[in-house]
Design a protein around this nucleic acid. Structure first.
Lengths: 148, 148
DNA sequence: TATTGTTATACTCTATAACTATA
DNA sequence: TATAGTTATAGAGTATAACAATA
């Protein structure tokens, strides 16, 4: 095994910096970090309950409520009672919400591309492929073997 | 530009999982996450002030104090007044501290290696090289261009 | 007076528990 | 009674400000 720092020790500061870089971009688009996470999650497909959405973005169901309130007020999402179970709220992104999400992501990725440009092209491609692979691991898969 | 999620969106959950995986390992070695960060920082070279150490590991100088207290009690570090400036405390890792740090890292990296084994060998090498490169960026370098 | 380390306080973020409404 | 959503409360983690010792 090659001598190196822990992955977490190397990646954590990088991720913190990337998040710091997202902050002003999202502010310019008028949304918070959690709002961006919600819009991104709804972009692919609508969600049938708020609890499912919270689960999907790794949040507690109670802490996304004010975010949903603001997104609804800003007409970036709709939040309607499910006719088949009026306890649940069906969450859908609006056209305006999609546009905000898409343009925010373009700005964010422009900055990320600037950083990735420091890597040789083939290394960059391998890196992105590896990140995709590793990010699809579940927490259980990552943690298993350390708790025995 | 290829269609992808944000780097932060992919890396953040991965890092959180890696940290979750470190927790039981560090607990088995009797140290906290911050203690591990301190020991790692002191492994290479002693530090002349607590403020410099805090800066190095991205912490506030006030929030590492209880960590230093515990490390000192456990004889994993020494914390002596600098004879040339008795306000400052020179921090040094002990042989016992080095041993704890080294064995904890071995366990942590054994788990990380298990995950990295999912990547093809050449991709794994490129990934690690890219992580090293990107993790050496300062926060300013990462953020610059997003605040204009 | 400025700086190092420390302590005490306040603030932010998050999780827990209690409540309303539907089922 | 059980579940979705909401609100209120409490807790953890962190930063801010005030303090003591030394320069």
């Amino acid at each position: 095994m090659t001598d190196r720092h822990d992955l977490a020790a190397m990646l954590h500061p990088l991720v913190q910096s990337l998040i710091a870089a997202e902050r002003p971009v999202l502010a310019a688009h008028g949304i918070s970090m959690w709002a961006y996470a919600v819009l991104t999650a709804l972009e692919d497909n609508a969600v049938r309950t708020q609890a499912a959405l919270a689960e999907a973005i790794g949040a507690d169901k109670t802490r996304i409520i004010s975010t949903l309130d603001r997104l609804q007020d800003a007409r970036l999402i709709t939040r309607d009672p499910d006719p088949r179970d009026r306890r649940a709220r069906v969450l859908t992104i609006t056209a305006q919400g999609s546009e905000v999400c898409r343009s925010a992501r373009a700005d964010i990725q422009a900055n990320e591309d600037r950083l990735l440009a420091r890597l040789p092209a083939s290394e960059r491609e391998s890196f992105l492929r590896a990140v995709r692979t590793l990010s699809q691991l579940t927490r259980e898969e990552v943690v298993s073997g350390t708790e025995a």
